[in-house]
Design a protein around this nucleic acid. Structure first.
Length: 878
RNA sequence: GGGCUCGUGGUCUAGUCGGUUAUGACGCGGCCUUUACAAGGCUGAGGUCGGUGGUUCGAAUCCGCCCGAGCCCA
């Protein structure tokens, strides 16, 4: 036991325990034989250097789950990875060093990226530590480490059947100069200009088309109309000349054309969008690529060659106008596909790339095996999966990523993929083990410079954390327990992981996906610098302490819901923490090392009540935790600690603790210790620092609260617990009565009389009550010695409703209109009541209503009446 | 355009497989130093549960429509 300072000081406590825990293996996964595994597929965040409060929410949920499952005796693995590869780091490194990535060798550039990433990770780890996450750092992984990306390569090699290298149109970001997957394209609403352009006919009348992309005219390969469109009847097959660029294109019919739009005629370019790709393939059209990889026009654009896309758009429009081909222009709203990393509008280029085949049905099937929380999030995955029409392009024309382990034969162009044994390998530095080309016997290889999509790295996290391939084979893989996941990346991280785990192991990756919402600012808007509503974890911790911030996040809503960060929730949590502190301080002063070992405590009803309540709370909280209802779990614990334990129980047993006889005093001590230690254990997932400090301060409790077990409490029969509850209620009512009277709460009373119709044979235990209210307590039965004045009736709708159906309203009306005193008399003498309802006699059971009585002291007596639900108390002030 | 989620006192939130007076917090008003706690206790005001129509004896809760917010997809 330690002496607790008077005031709750989160800074001191949290710093202290962070230091204590740092060098322990409190959170280590032990791979224990006889304890069930609980393995968490923790998200590997991108190392931006900045762990924001959204991460804070997500990791808080993870930590709640991890700490709860440890209490339940599970062998918990809470690893932490880092999804290092990617463009933003490359850009940052170029910026910081004032270089372009081609200024140095690939190797050197990679090293700079690694160095930068390590700094970013350190800073994020610091915030994680401050928030008190129980991460097992011995299971940390970084996708940029050879030991990890070697696995990414291995997974690539082992999926060889589903990998293909082909030329195919792909989404291309002209700023990042790389292919990107469908999932990395976002739609953004922008205002653009819709140009009406007239094409001269070749031996026929001109035709007008509408386009937002005049700069793609040089890429125009056809014009299409709806086959049903009467305006173009008989014209399909006509030939037209593309203005300014001169190529001749044919008018074709395709039912995908939206006849309602503009003139109903649309130009097909290679490629303006995915629709163009469909038409191009379906009608076997020419390929006229006019865009370069860095977003300029090429020589097919003639005089516009070398211009950027926006420049060319403007210049071509102007030239069309000058040449008399521009019929009209108006502004239009359009959804533009943009690169999710840099917001640059994407293009579609036809390029040789590596692809992974997508089997939509297989993915959906696995997704269905997973429990989604909340369950409607499954729909997002399903919708996305079913809408996929292109294979996943996994090659990227970048540097800082997992190398694609493949070489091209310089002689015959054969592509050779590495064998598992030679991994990890960087094909730009090492030749393949195979030696001569299996196709042509040549020995000159060129290593693939393309690298992998970072989702190739992060979509094998369940395999990695399960110990593949060193400890388990693919076949031995079993789904891990939990995947925490933001709903914004369901189409990527969840989707790809389902795909890859399914392909590699034939299993679902996890049992449960727990989707967290976003964290909004205190004003209810998305946090943004321009709004000035950004709350950083550090600021919040400085203001309220991590224990309070975690609670505020837990109470912000049910998992899956977006959470508005509310300073007042943190305030409220902080007050609760203070309360816990004070309770602990009080308890610690009354308990000693022997308390925990007290045998057969002589419990009184108050003790049985608090322990019974604690048992009930432990069960409810357990259920809520299992259902990931962290909000209701925490509410339940708080309610119990504050109201039952602090307000009621402590007040009831103070007398015994201060001056009780040894046996009775020990019973109170023992019950207090049990209830408090149970509370702290239930609280420990939410407020790990405070719970630990308090647990540590209680004499006789060994070890860390985080190594303790979920509370198991003695069983008491319901009646005993109810009697204790009544004692607590009476004490509480007398307390507020005294407060209302302006009396000191410890003011002495002459006596109180408790009238109760409590059933069962045990009499009310008034020992604690008497000292709590500071008055002798007399138990009475029957009617209090006061006037009972029936003042109304309280009908039981649940019983009258179904019985009388459409007459129920009239019955209740008659009941309420009747004289309460007469009803009371009938109820007591006959056990039922006859009523006149719309001229008909109706018989009501006695329990169909209750007569509400106000009890008034008989005149002349100095007595106050305090009424409870199931008792009436007479207070004699004396 | 399609889909999903949500709308409860000033603010945030619980309750939503129908059943009496709708939960709690923050804030606001009043009263109170009581041997853990004034970062406390007691108490008060404040809600036509987005609107509307329906089902039902009875709707915050179920159904239809409308309005509003947000997200995902096209």
């Amino acid at each position: 036991m330690t002496d607790l300072p008077d005031d709750y000081d989160p800074d001191r406590i949290e710093q202290h325990w962070r230091d204590q825990w740092r060098d322990t293996d409190l959170y280590a996964y032990e791979d224990h034989e006889d304890r069930p595994d609980y393995i968490i597929d923790t998200p590997p965040p991108y190392p931006t250097g900045n762990l924001h409060i959204g991460h804070g929410l997500q990791w808080s949920y993870i930590d709640f789950a991890a700490r709860y499952h440890r209490l339940k005796g599970d062998d918990v693995l809470f690893p932490q990875g880092w999804d290092c590869h990617g463009l933003p780091t490359e850009v940052k490194v170029e910026e910081n060093h004032g270089i372009h990535r081609t200024d140095v060798s690939r190797e050197e550039f990679r090293d700079l990226c690694i160095e930068h990433t390590e700094e970013q990770i350190d800073s994020m780890k610091e915030t994680m530590d401050e928030l008190g996450f129980s991460i097992d750092w011995s299971a940390e992984f970084r996708t940029m480490d050879e030991s990890y990306w070697g696995k990414t390569q291995r997974s690539f090699v082992e999926m060889e059947d589903d990998v293909h290298r082909d030329e195919h149109p792909v989404n291309w970001c002209p700023r990042c100069e790389t292919a990107i997957a469908d999932a990395e394209v976002e739609k953004e609403d922008r205002t653009g200009t819709l140009y009406q352009v007239a094409f001269d006919g070749v031996e026929t009348d001109p035709i007008e088309i509408a386009t937002t992309r005049p700069e793609l005219l040089p890429a125009c390969v056809a014009i299409a109309v709806d086959p049903e469109d009467e305006r173009y009847e008989g014209r399909v097959g006509d030939t037209f000349e593309v203005p300014l660029f001169g190529q001749e294109v044919e008018l074709i019919a395709d039912e995908d054309v939206d006849g309602e739009f503009g003139t109903g005629a649309v130009m097909i370019c290679t490629f303006g969008d995915k629709q163009d790709v469909d038409w191009w393939a379906r009608h076997d059209l020419d390929l006229r690529p006019v865009l370069t990889e860095d977003g300029h026009l090429n020589d097919l654009a003639g005089e516009f060659e070398g211009q950027t896309i926006p420049e060319a758009k403007e210049n071509v429009a102007e030239a069309l106008d000058d040449a008399g081909h521009l019929v009209d222009e108006n502004s239009t709203e359009q959804a533009v596909g943009v690169c999710w990393r840099c917001d640059t509008p994407i293009e579609i280029l036809s390029k040789e790339q590596w692809f992974v085949r997508i089997d939509q049905d297989a993915i959906v099937e696995k997704a269905k095996e997973v429990e989604w929380i909340p369950d409607h999030m499954y729909a997002r995955l399903e919708e996305w999966a079913e809408g996929m029409d292109w294979d996943w392009v996994i090659s990227r024309q970048r540097v800082f990523a997992t190398p694609i382990p493949a070489w091209e034969c310089q002689e015959c162009g054969h592509w050779h993929v590495a064998e598992v044994e030679e991994l990890p390998v960087d094909p730009t530095e090492t030749d393949p083990a195979v030696g001569a080309c299996p196709e042509c016997e040549a020995e000159e290889w060129v290593g693939e410079t393309d690298v992998m999509d970072t989702w190739m790295d992060s979509s094998i996290t369940p395999l990695h954390i399960s110990g593949w391939p060193e400890e388990i084979t693919r076949e031995e893989f079993e789904p891990v327990a939990l995947r925490p996941q933001g709903h914004d990346i369901i189409r990527t991280w969840a989707f790809y992981t389902l795909l890859r785990t399914g392909k590699l192991t034939d299993e679902r990756p996890w049992d449960t996906v727990l989707v967290n919402g976003m964290v909004f600012g205190p004003d209810g808007n998305k946090m943004s610098k321009s709004r000035g509503n950004v709350v950083t974890p550090r600021e919040a911790i400085d203001d309220y302490g991590a224990d309070a911030v975690r609670q505020a996040l837990a109470l912000g809503g049910q998992p899956g819901a977006d959470v508005q960060f509310q300073p007042k929730e943190a305030t409220s949590a902080s007050r609760f923490n203070t309360k816990v502190w004070n309770i602990t301080k009080f308890a610690a002063g009354h308990l000693d090392e022997r308390t925990v070992d007290i045998e057969d405590p002589a419990y009184r009803d108050a003790d049985r009540w608090i322990l019974g309540r604690a048992a009930q709370v432990a069960e409810r909280v357990d259920e809520a935790m299992q259902e990931y209802r962290y909000d209701s779990a925490l509410r339940e614990v708080r309610e119990f600690v504050w109201h039952d334990l602090a307000d009621d129980y402590l007040e009831l047993v103070k007398g015994r603790l201060y001056e009780g006889r040894p046996g009775e005093r020990n019973a109170a001590r023992h019950a207090l210790l049990t209830a408090l230690s149970s509370s702290l254990r239930m609280l420990s997932p939410f407020a790990p620092f405070l719970a630990e400090e308090a647990y540590d301060a209680l004499p006789g409790l060994d070890g860390s609260v985080h190594a303790a077990e979920w509370p198991t409490l003695p069983d008491f029969d319901e009646e005993t617990v109810d009697r204790g509850q009544l004692v607590a209620d009476v004490a509480s009512e007398i307390r507020s009565w005294k407060s209302e009277q302006g009396m000191a709460l410890n003011a002495e009373l002459d006596r109180i009389e408790v009238f109760t119709d409590l059933e069962g044979d045990g009499a009310l235990d008034t020992y604690d009550l008497s000292s709590a209210v500071n008055a002798p307590v007399y138990l009475e039965s029957g009617r209090p010695n006061v006037e009972l004045v029936p003042v109304g009736v309280d009908p039981d709708h649940a019983s009258i409703g179904p019985k009388f159906r459409d007459e129920a309203g009239a019955v209740i009306g008659a009941l309420e209109a009747a004289d309460p005193a007469a009803l009371k008399a009938q109820q007591e003498t006959n056990g039922e009541v006859e009523l006149d309802v719309n001229g008909e006699a109706v018989t009501l059971d006695a329990d169909a209503f209750e007569v509400v009585e106000e009890q008034q002291a008989a005149s002349g007596e100095e007595v106050e009446v305090v009424e409870l639900d199931d008792a009436t108390v007479l207070v004699y002030e004396g």
